[in-house]
Simulated scan of single mutants.
Amino acid sequence: MFTLLIRTFILFIIIIITMRIMGKRQIGELQPYELVITIIISELASIPISDTKIPLVHSICPIITLILLQVILSVIQMKFDKARTLLCGKPSLLIKNGYIDIEEMKRQKLNLDDLLEELRLAGYYNLEDIEYAILETSGKLSIIPKTKLTSVTKKDLNIKVQQDILPLTLISDGKIRYKNLQSINKDMEWLKNELARKSIYSYKDVFIGIINSEGKTYFQRKN
């Protein structure tokens, strides 16, 4: 009995350290590869607890290997866009300009009831109130309502507003997202001018560059 308690305590400490290394994410926010690693680690930890004949090292070594793999994959997906897409997938636009993308719903294996349920959970009960709905890689739904409904005072006072655009990443860790740049009908010359306005003369020095929902650019240097 004492041996079992000691083994359980050791594995508990190792799992706590492992989870801290993996980061402060909830289960629902884990990327697919992170969720797989978490499930495997839980299985590896339970085996030597239920069977004391199995040496503890037979679980500790695979757990350490998995956490090293998770760290390596995290670094790779931070540095390379293609690796990030391969490991985590990419966000899916389920509602665009107020209309449901039926083909994208089919690709994501979602039905209308699932979508409406997620909208209700987010506090939106009318489909016509939604301008964009984005299914994130973690499985959560991000919602951008129609601009006239984001503030009660704008609608009540009949103030004319311009519809917000979809925020996009233009630069990620020194790499330009050319597809996003093309989607807003801008070119490299425009991007260079935007950078110059912020006294930034090389996109490689930028950690994150975005165009927000109001069409304004924001840049943060790597340093």
Rank of each mutant, 00 (worst) to 15 (best):
K198R: 10
L87G: 03
N193Q: 13
C88T: 10
L30E: 03
G28C: 06
S151M: 05
Y125V: 09
R84M: 07
S183R: 13
L166P: 07
M1W: 05
S59N: 06
N97S: 08
H58V: 02
N158A: 09
E128D: 15
L195C: 10
I64T: 07
E194G: 06
S172E: 06
K90Y: 09
G174S: 10
I60K: 06
G215W: 12
K146T: 00
L170S: 02
N185Q: 11
I143M: 01
F207N: 02
G209N: 01
G23R: 03
R221W: 00
T8C: 15
L5G: 14
A45C: 13
T38S: 15
I6M: 11
T65M: 09
I39R: 06
S213W: 01
M78P: 00
Y125T: 08
K148Y: 11
V161T: 15
L68Q: 06
I63H: 08
I64D: 04
R120Q: 12
I17H: 04
I17Y: 09
I39Q: 02
L44T: 09
L44K: 07
L112Q: 07
Q182T: 10
V161C: 14
M1S: 11
W190D: 07
L116M: 12
I144N: 00
E189Q: 11
M22Q: 07
C61V: 14
I134R: 00
G123E: 05
I6K: 08
P32V: 08
Q26Y: 11
K186D: 03
